[in-house]
Simulated assay, not measured.
Amino acid sequence: MNAPAHPSRSAPAPVSSTASPPPPLRSRTVYAAAHVVADPHADTTPDGPAAVDWDTTLAFRHHLWAHGLGVAEAMDTAQRGAGLDWGAAAELIRRSAAEARSVGGLLACGAGTDQLPAHGASLAEVRDAYEEQLGTVEAAGARPVLMASRQLAAAATGPDDYRELYGHLLRQTTRPAILHWLGPMFDPALAGYWGSPDPGAATETLLALVADHPGKVDGVKVSLLDPGREVALRRRLPPDVHCYTGDDFHYPELIAGDTHGFSDALLGVFDPLAPLAAAAVRRLDTGDTAGFRAALDPTVALARHLFAAPTRHYKTGVVLLAWLAGHQPHFTMVGGLQSARSLPHLRRAHQLADALGLFPDPELAAHRMRTLLAVYGGGGA
């Protein structure tokens, strides 16, 4: 019998869980929102509890920390509300926090309300759900990210409901929290967040909330894909409050900043871009803004492809690239969302990532892409 063409191609390269990360990035605070790795052998259904491959999921967090990035855990990129249920998310938070402590890694974790039914929750039930999740994050020792809530968007009658509920949460946090503004392009159920369909009015409510609670807000994570609005918001934030860009289309210019300031980062696209992103920010650490842009600008084409409409399905491309790069042995997602993008979309993601040099083993990536296309009748890579 002939030996297989790629005898060592079924498992990712081992990642040490004890290696110390490099010195932290100095000029910007940078979190990569990390994906989860499904257990491909679990007998699950798309609407059942998530089955997670914990070892491979946590090994990927160590990969991010090893490049000096922080990890934003249990966020949208981890398929919150799209395959990852609260029970699995809570376990993910606890496990990631323990791993972060073992290497001194930077960690922030999402607290939301996704243990509630999609519709019909009262404001009191939304508050209680947030408190449960906030308690889990803080008990793990992580910085909380107060995630945008579908249930709050449905239950709130106006801006005052947001200010009252978030104010209640901020008064009880033990460390400053990150507020999360996720636009409807990422989740249509969040349209009209902060109590108004007008982004200008919503901005005023958010700024008023920050002003109401000095010292309780570490930063605001803005995912609107509108760089002008983000810049206008960050110029009005107090000096001690970060503006974390979540704009996966315009991140180089927003992180580079201008004469009035810059955005830090909390980005899903930095999951696949971790090595390039960390190297680029280290150029900023030396004052080399031009070098930063030269390193990061070429990645935008891939980011725009991954986050093309419907933007909420960007996670499929992120997980594909993790598989092609050797970080996990399969292309299976919780909730079955590996099917959420077309074969032409996935093929183009491979081409763009390969052109950037993202794959440690380009031959492995090409082999895996050919295998995927062959299984689904898509032809050669």
Rank of each mutant, 00 (worst) to 15 (best):
Arg28Gly: 00
Asp160Asn: 13
Ala34Lys: 02
Gly215Cys: 04
Leu306Asp: 07
Leu373Lys: 09
Asp39His: 11
Arg101Trp: 10
Met1Tyr: 12
Gly261Gln: 05
Leu267Ala: 02
Gly335Met: 05
His41Thr: 14
Gly380Ile: 12
Thr113Asp: 04
Gly167Trp: 08
Thr77His: 00
Pro298Glu: 12
Val241Cys: 00
Ala100His: 05
Ala82Ile: 02
Ile178Pro: 00
Ile178Asp: 01
Arg171Met: 10
Ala374Asp: 14
Leu372Asp: 03
Arg348Asp: 11
Asp354His: 13
His305Met: 14
Pro49Thr: 02
Ser8Arg: 06
Pro360Lys: 10
Thr371Asn: 12
Thr29Ser: 09
Val15Gly: 08
Gln351His: 14
Arg143Thr: 11
Ala374Gln: 13
Gly257Phe: 01
Arg236Asp: 03
Leu92Trp: 01
Asp240Gly: 06
Tyr314Phe: 15
Pro46Leu: 00
Ser102Cys: 05
Ala279Phe: 05
Ala365His: 06
Leu146Cys: 05
Leu324Lys: 00
Arg28Phe: 11
Leu224Asp: 01
Asp248Leu: 00
Glu204Ile: 10
Pro197Ser: 09
Gly70Asn: 05
Leu356Trp: 10
Lys221Glu: 09
Ala177Leu: 04
Arg368Lys: 11
Asp43Ala: 08
Leu170Glu: 02
Ser223Ala: 14
Ala202Asp: 04
Gly120Arg: 14
Trp181Gly: 01
Ala142Pro: 07
Ala121Ser: 15
Pro188Asp: 09
Ala211Asp: 15
Thr18Gln: 10
Ser263Leu: 03
Pro184Val: 02
Pro272Glu: 05
Gly228His: 03
Pro14Arg: 09
Ala322Leu: 15
Asp128Pro: 05
Tyr244Leu: 13
Ala32His: 04
Ala211Gln: 14
Pro22Lys: 08
Gly200Arg: 07
Ala280Glu: 00
Ala38Cys: 05
Ser196Gln: 02
Gly141His: 13
Trp181Pro: 09
Pro344Gln: 12
Leu266Arg: 01
